[in-house]
Amino acid sequence: MKLFTGRAEPETLPANNESHEDELTVSVEEDTAYFAVVTASDLHIGTRPYQQDALYVTETACSDPGTTLKVFGVLCDGMGGMENGEKAGRLTVEQLAKDLDELDPHSDVPAFFESEVAKLDELVCEEVAGGMKNGTGTTLTAVLIIDKDLYWAAVGDSRIYILRSNEILQVTRDHNYMLLLENEVRNGRLLREEAEAHPDKDALISYIGSGNVRFININRAPFRLAHGDVVLQCSDGLTKSLSDDEIKEIIIDHYGDLAETARMLTLQAFDAGEGSKDNTSVILMQYFE
């Protein structure tokens, strides 16, 4: 198991991607249709002197008759004081990756994610924050693919997107103060301008290490993947610099080379706009059958 905390090495993709893809799609007409999940990831430190994002993703995997294909990715954006934030993110990634690795693929995945979130929350609270709610913690996104089924879980403002053909869809909500403010706007208790101007609008209201996780995003029923689907996990460093459409264009422009796509996403997030840049991390998975 490897944990990336610096700039990641390119994922182990075959040098010649075209022939690689041919290989993956060749036996569709036979009785046993093969399928595969290609994975890639990248981290960029931005202009920060420290890297609080952490991630782990399994290697590219191809289906093997008789066994269950299991691919997963975990991405965290640590928060709080510099050392603690880094520790919270790393600890969460390490523990969840270990537990996902040991998970029986036939078990109840949504229930696993729910109990895991409670367990990680407690772990970070005790190990990093010293049992206190002091703003130290981490966001979490986790994606698990079992054969052709996708499951996800997210806490905080790191996001998960699914891209299918020309559409991109954020399947998680940002658990920040803006979520509460938007509710106030909707109910006429606050003006939109007031909400947008609120200094705390980006502050998280649900995160691992809060001692009491309020909100999680989870899918109860498996999401059935279709050929070519791309699943993106990312920290807010990406989504604060690039719009959903810009992210989509980058993925489509580099279709076929997922490792390059991951690098381009973090690089363009860094290049976009002015001023200081947050840590940016992405995990990409693409499903082929």
Binding site: Q52, L180, I205
Partner: peptide, 27 residues
């Protein structure tokens, strides 16, 4: 000031948080 990831302390959430509990539309 900008894009640090920070948490909100429980006290400042107050009534809005409870409002959200009662309004699933926001989610």
């Amino acid at each position: 000031n900008d894009d640090l990831t920070v948490g909100l302390t429980q006290g400042t959430i107050g009534q809005m948080d409870q409002n959200l509990d009662q309004n699933t539309e926001a989610l």
